[in-house]
Design a binder for these strands. Structure first.
Length: 458
RNA sequence: GUGGUUGUAGCUCAGCUGGUUAGAGCGCUGGAUUGUGGUUCCAGAGGUCGCCGGUUCGAACCCGGUCUUCCACCCCA
């Protein structure tokens, strides 16, 4: 019995037009990764469970897709574990592998395993799918691509500067003008927590602060109160909630606010270096702004934090992000290796380019020339022309059967083919072919002896 | 993981308080048009009403479960 086909929750098929558009983005991103000296790596789609488990927090462990062991795996479970019905204990017994959850942890594993063959600083890029057992929402899937570039083995702030330039280069070539590269520093957040006397509430404080543009000042002060942050501390931090002005003005305010915190002051000087260096180098189309409310990925970032916002007027959250993490490889026993990296949010960039109509027109042109098939002899002559066109790199095809003219023309029209070639009985006799321009509808005749006349006009 | 929401033709959606044979637009196929698509006209094909069960004389409609969609939270790209 035929079953109705379906697709797993949170997954997608990509049709030709979508693949073309996605590749267009990939190709531009890759091109700039390469010109900045990054090298590609790939890692397996699944890893040993112990490589992934415990690296993303409790929430992360829940969202990792586990792969069932092969064979008669239940036989190996002792009765006690089986009867306890404890999913965590049970999972450890019946699953030893799990699907990749992000690209950063596998990369850290890769660096540690290949440390003797890598020349540091090592700049790598990686574009591969990752999987999360999350509940899907718009723009959030259970299978999606991550597109990362990281540098390990250099603590120079010039790396941060390069990533800002890289973002600018990619978004400029994609035609996405006016993206906002937001910059913050974990040390500044830690310094703030320190000077307001809530050092041990750093995470709660910043998670609340991160929601400023979403729930407003009242919302975040309420959340901070609920998390047990003192009224005095909230008051002391209040100037941050309405921090405004130019980057240099904001830096001046922060410098003063954090003058008694060693860590905070370090953060301010790091941020100042990046801002000043970029100011002297210049950016093509992007804006670089300080945003002290930026707190993404705070669990592992230790220095700079990046987030890229879509241009004004586009209803879309962040389209990229990243930061510095001082101890990337420590979890796998390799100490003192600093890493810094960025990520491009492919799916969201796709949606933004679609909304602003920024994909090149020709992207949906899968065929430039289609020859109408009028029969055996005519078809053969057309196929000779097609071979010639293909050798010249022209995307061309012969309709495979001598179907009705109307059907063949309609096919060409639906496939967005700009030129239709007609070689019928009469043309065959005169050794010519007719080219119909599907856009304006006019026709021109060329000699089969010199098709380059037509090719040169393409 | 919590709360809510959605599902009817290939697509977008109508379908009254439960009542005969479930409709439209677009698309598709054929014809008007035997060498001309994109505009027009005519005709036709296409439906387990997400799935399973229940209530009822009778269910697309009511109830339960399940899957799916989307939304908020959590978290995140």
């Amino acid at each position: 019995m035929a079953q109705k086909p379906s697709i797993a929750k949170g997954t997608r098929d990509f049709s030709p037009s979508e693949v073309n558009k996605r590749n267009y983005i990939f190709d531009i991103v890759k091109k700039h990764f390469k010109t900045y000296g990054f090298q590609p790596i790939e890692t397996p789609s699944f890893e040993n469970s112990e490589t992934l488990m415990g690296k993303y927090g409790d929430e992360g462990d829940r969202l990792i897709f586990k792969i069932l062991n092969s064979g008669d795996y239940l036989r190996k479970v002792d009765d006690k574990t089986y009867e306890s019905k404890d999913a965590t204990a049970m999972t450890a017994k019946i699953s030893e592998k799990a699907l990749r959850y992000d690209l950063t942890v596998p990369f850290a594993r890769y660096v540690v395993m290949h440390q003797n063959e890598i020349d540091f600083p090592f700049k790598r890029y990686q574009i591969q799918p990752v999987w999360r057992a999350d509940r899907p929402q718009k723009g959030r899937f259970r299978e999606f691509f991550q597109c990362d570039a990281d540098v390990v083995g250099s603590d120079s702030l010039l790396q941060e500067v390069e990533f800002v330039q890289l973002y600018d280069a990619v978004f400029t070539e994609l035609g996405l003008q006016g993206v906002n590269i937001k910059l913050n520093n974990r040390k500044i957040l830690a310094g703030i927590a320190e000077v307001i006397g809530e050092r041990d509430k750093l995470i709660d404080f910043t998670v609340a602060l991160d929601k400023l543009d979403k729930i407003g000042i009242d919302g975040i002060t309420k959340e901070m109160r609920e998390k047990g942050i003192s009224e005095k501390a909230i008051e002391a931090a209040a100037p941050l909630f309405s921090l405004s002005g130019s980057n240099l003005e904001q830096l001046a305010v922060l410098k003063d606010l954090l003058k008694d915190s060693e860590e905070g002051s370090k953060g301010v000087s790091e941020l100042t270096f990046i801002i000043e260096t970029i100011a002297s180098l210049g950016l093509q189309t992007a804006k670089l702004t300080i945003d002290v409310t930026l707190a993404r990925g705070l669990n592992y970032y230790t220095g700079a934090i990046f987030e890229v916002g879509a241009p004004e007027g586009v209803q879309m959250g962040s389209i990229g992000g990243g930061g510095r993490y001082d101890d990337l490889t420590g979890i796998f026993g390799m100490k003192n290796v600093s890493g810094v990296g960025i990520s491009f949010g492919l799916d969201r960039i796709y949606l933004v380019l679609e909304e602003l109509n920024l994909f090149p027109e020709a992207i949906d042109q899968s065929l430039e020339v289609l020859c109408v098939n009028f029969g055996e002899k005519e078809g053969l002559a057309a196929l000779k022309l097609v071979s010639r066109l293909r050798k010249m790199g022209v995307k061309s095809d012969l309709y495979p059967s001598a179907a009705k003219m109307q059907k063949q023309m309609k096919y060409a029209n639906n496939r967005n083919v700009p030129y239709v070639v007609l070689i019928g009985e009469e043309e065959l006799e005169n050794n010519t072919f007719v080219v119909k321009n599907m856009l304006i509808g006019d026709q021109k005749t060329y000699s089969l002896n010199s098709p380059e006349e037509f090719i040169n006009e393409l």
